[in-house]
């Protein structure tokens, strides 16, 4: 869990209703049963919160949460409490 970007974690639980226990670095969006519309919604949320464009290259159905976290870490200010 500690490897998941905070913004991603919050968007998945609070906006897309993904149970927090299923949020692991290895899980893909497909594993979480999120469809392309849900990913489009996630991209808009990430873009709005970071001010950085987020496209299909960054978030797609086969992406793992670890990969997306790494991408989001590069465009967000790291949080102090990240392990």
């Amino acid at each position: 869990m500690s490897d998941i970007n905070d913004l991603l974690k919050e968007a998945l639980t609070d906006s897309l209703g993904v149970p927090s226990e299923s949020i692991t670095p290895e899980a893909t969006f497909e594993d979480l049963e999120l469809d392309s519309l849900a990913l489009a919604e996630l991209a808009v949320i990430c873009e709005e919160r970071t001010g950085h464009p987020v496209g299909d290259d960054n978030i797609n159905i086969g992406s793992s949460l670890g990969e997306v976290s790494a991408f989001l870490d590069t465009i967000t200010t790291p949080h102090k409490d990240s392990a």
Partner: peptide
């Protein structure tokens, strides 16, 4: 419902 369905 479920949070996932309800939020949609």
């Amino acid at each position: 419902l479920t949070p996932k369905l309800a939020l949609r």
